[in-house]
């Protein structure tokens, strides 16, 4: 069974998904970061494919991408690292990347490499829905890969329904109209949107991302969805460097998101 399916079957709430950019801060950190995240009790990890022009990302993730590319990260190396990380943990892996690197690598070659490396699902935010429907839906099914599409406060209801029908992973709820890492608190208008989508009773579980940076925002998101995604806040933490060993740094970060009282 696909590890994502299994996760969502076994766990219905407070799912914590942590995003990081592969190759950041150090080229060889990918395996370590995944291992520590898994040990710290993260439910799934979203591995970012660094890209030169990440349109939907704010300064934090942009800078991490730039650094990762400068470090020498490539898709081949990324797949090697993910494959190695897969030897150490059984939590689901999502690859998040823009469409252009996937196209240049070759879509079929990319999907095969994903399966070979133990990747369970994909997020390709600039892949058009109709192109997925016409070209990639069958291919992904064939490879047993899940795909998640984004919805935003501006996505109309009929399109949310269509996305729910077409996707086979989770629904990635972008918490507000913004790029990543832009907001730090959740506003009333966002809650209204969370409730509106919650009341739609979609077939697929929802994870809320963008602006989830601490216990409060994670906790709020979990009231309205199966869980949430933390990205920029984690990258910032990694970027602060090592007064403490990375393992300890990651454990503390995860603990603070999940339950600061016990931390």
């Amino acid at each position: 069974m696909n590890r994502l399916d299994r996760l969502f079957q076994e766990k219905k709430q407070e799912i914590l998904n942590i995003y990081f950019t592969a190759g950041y801060p150090g080229l060889g950190d990918t395996v370590k970061i995944i291992r520590h995240l898994a040990d710290a009790g993260v439910d799934l990890v979203e591995i970012g494919i660094p890209y030169s022009d990440p349109l939907a990302d704010g300064p934090t993730i942009q800078a991490s991408s730039e650094k990762a590319l400068a470090n020498g990260m490539t898709l081949d190396l990324l797949f090697q690292q993910v494959k190695e990380a897969r030897q150490h943990t059984d939590i689901p892996f999502i690859l998040m990347g823009y469409f252009n690197p996937v196209l240049q690598y070759g879509e079929d070659r990319f999907f095969r490499a994903c399966v070979h490396a133990g990747v369970d699902g994909l997020i390709i935010p600039d892949m058009p829905l109709h192109e997925y429907e016409q070209v990639y839906r069958e291919k992904l099914k064939h490879h047993g890969l899940k795909i998640s599409f984004l919805i935003t406060p501006q996505t109309p209801e009929d399109r949310i329904r269509k996305i729910d029908d077409l996707s086979n992973g989770f629904i990635y709820m972008v918490s507000s109209s913004s790029i990543t890492g832009a907001k730090t608190a959740i506003q009333a208008s966002q809650l209204e949107y969370f409730r509106r989508v919650q009341a739609m009773h979609l077939k697929h579980p929802r994870l809320i991302g963008f602006g989830i940076s601490n216990y409060e925002t994670f906790n709020t998101a979990c009231h309205y969805a199966a869980g949430a995604i933390v990205g920029s806040a984690f990258i910032k933490q990694l970027g602060q460097g090592a007064n403490v060993p990375m393992e300890q740094q990651i454990h503390q970060f995860v603990q603070h998101i999940k339950n600061p009282v016990e931390a």
């Binding site: 890209y51 022009d53 349109l55 490539t74 252009n100 240049q104």
Partner: peptide, 21 residues
């Protein structure tokens, strides 16, 4: 250039083998 995506459009663009612009 070769075919790829830049600024939301599929077109010819200058890019690396790995699809970095």
């Amino acid at each position: 250039g070769s075919a790829g995506i830049i600024h939301g459009s599929k077109t010819l663009l200058m890019q690396t083998e790995d699809g970095q612009i």
